[in-house]
Design a protein around this nucleic acid. Structure first.
Lengths: 209, 209, 209, 209
DNA sequence: CATGAATGAGAGTTCATTCAT
DNA sequence: AATGAATGAACTCTCATTCAT
């Protein structure tokens, strides 16, 4: 009914809602009808701006990955020693995940599909982020701060854990209420997590151990 | 036309295929038609044994969780010290994940759906597994082998990493082929992963550090 | 609402209506919704019996061509001289066209699409009919009854004319009512047409002329 | 952005493309979007010049019929005897069809739609062409060159055959390649067709036979 | 004269689910 | 215990058409 005549705004409204819906309900369970209604535009408008549902989804995922990459690299400072940098990576990733609580599940879902249909552009954006992480580790090893380790495993220990902590926050709360002897970290906030994770990961890598 | 098998056999055939399909294609992308054809029964039969697609799915997930729980607790031996037990947990979980490479993605997906629709029975099965893990840690702390830590975070560091490593194996291979300077652990087998993860996690928890 | 539980009947009902609708309204303008309603079944049932709209359409066209071919070859008698046989071909084709007034337009439409998307099976059925016609001419030439001619051109003169006469019958009536000095053959019945066409075509081919 | 052309030019550009698209793809399969893009104007402009898709289509058909009529009557010379005039009609129609190979299928399609929705203006343009043809025959009969015949049937024998020969040219080539014993007139050019058709039709009408 | 943004209606197709047998 | 036949509701996507600028 309301007609906005502003392309940018409309497109933005679609993407905004798309991010929300895709991440809370998943790709399949998000219908274009719903997305249309929720974004205040007609279904036809979505297809006016995006060729297909899949294309819209890819646009959404690209955005997410770009945002993460930028957040993580912006503050990156090679003058710091690798331990501090790793700590920064972790806490920035956590900040990002908490600020966009719907995004991690998007990533988890995409990864757990074996990524077989992952289009090239997404694929390379994911690689870029891992590459950045990997370099921090290498530098740490070169400088004698870190002992040798599998970057990939470490990467999943960091990002996987964060993603899971964020997406399960409701679940963990529920579990705690059911059985208070179970410490599901239901009260953990981003600081607690950052400290716990950062400290544990760095201590795990300490080369003098 | 009508092959008379007994009920158990038919039901089993359905579940077996369901596990395979749900885990390789996901819930939404698995159609009852396909499941019927593949399991050699008619669609109507599936609905005869299971009230709905969702119910079947839950049955499938319960199975998976039971299997994991059994695998993990079978060898559990409280006479061992907690460090060894933790190591066992990790390697058994890894064995399980490699033996059923489709299951981890099921779990990841279910968790990343915010679990808000997770039915009670699934929920408690998940709790049970975490509870077991948590006890190992507590014992380790009590015995002075482990320093204090958030069990939940540790649990995700372990299971999340394993699940991700398994579900992304194809993806990591692809990424490595594209750029060989990137160590995506594409050659890692279960032993490598068990060693890397077990050792790192235990060393991270060492109380004397 | 009414549920017939008879596969053959249902499939037949669909095809029957499909023939009618496709030929009166064309492929594009016939909607599956309409076809469903008209045939007394649900849309889903159509897709239960036919994989796609296109497949249904092909089935319909195949039927038509088979029917024509059978009608035309059934009475074919090589003991007759080619002139009589040609006459028979014409009058049988006319009978068929008048008995199934919706079919000729289907054929015309399919042909006028340049047949570029014509699937192999349809293509060969069309060839088979032309081949039969062509043989009659050849025999006539061999026996000295017919002079040389382009079989293809003759074939279109015969079938094209018949198809057009049938599909335009309403139109010609209207035109005559508008202007009675115009002889649109609005009163022509199948006999008139058979005589006019048969005689003219044969006389045109007479070798002694 | 806004290329200011004059109205006539724009309108002409639209019709030109419309003729091409409607005739190669048919009415339904031609989308206004496509037409807009191809004609270098915006969709809205098309609706500015033509009330609806149907109206544009009618305009297109009218053009075609006018062109044919003019081509056919331009050279018409009542001093010639009817046999020559008939021959001229045929060869001019053939020239026209070969020069505009997309138009015949338009006409065939429109006719085979039972013409029930044929608007008045199209209807009368079609009548006018037939009327001209009819007069040639009448004159031929009056002058004793032609024996009696149904003008309508003859008209379809001429125009129907030509239209079909043109629209099926690809098809006939394909059929010949598949089976070289089949003479599909795949090499026939306009001269061959004009000779074959003209001579056959005139000989068929010869009153002294 | 010209357009980009917007839409309602409808297209073909799929799917979980039910029912008669 | 078993199935083929049936369906309503939903899905993605397209299209002719309109309106504000």
């Amino acid at each position: 009914m309301k007609r906005k005549r502003n392309a940018k705004e409309s497109k933005e409204a679609i993407i905004r809602k798309a991010v929300e819906l895709f991440s809370t309900k998943g790709y399949d369970s998000t219908s274009m009808d719903e997305l249309a209604t929720e974004s205040g535009l007609s279904k036809a408008m979505i297809f006016y701006y995006f060729k297909s549902k899949r294309e819209l989804y890819e646009e959404v995922l690209c955005r997410v990955l770009d945002e993460i990459y930028e957040a993580v690299t912006k503050k990156s400072d090679t003058r710091l020693d690798a331990r501090e940098e790793l700590n920064d990576f972790i806490s920035i990733y956590i900040d990002f995940a908490y600020a966009h609580p719907y995004l991690p599940s998007l990533l988890l879902k995409e990864l757990s599909d074996n990524g077989s249909i992952l289009p090239e552009i997404l694929f390379s954006k994911m690689r870029r982020l891992f590459s950045h992480f990997s370099e921090i580790l290498s530098r740490g090893e070169a400088d004698g701060f870190f002992r040798e380790s599998k970057a990939m495993v470490l990467y999943f220990m960091v990002t996987g854990t964060i993603n899971l902590m964020v997406t399960t926050s409701e679940l963990r709360k529920r579990a705690y209420e059911r059985d208070e002897t179970l410490d599901t970290c239901s009260e953990c906030n981003r600081e607690t997590l950052a400290r716990e994770l950062g400290e544990k990961i760095v201590s795990m890598l300490r080369s003098d151990s």
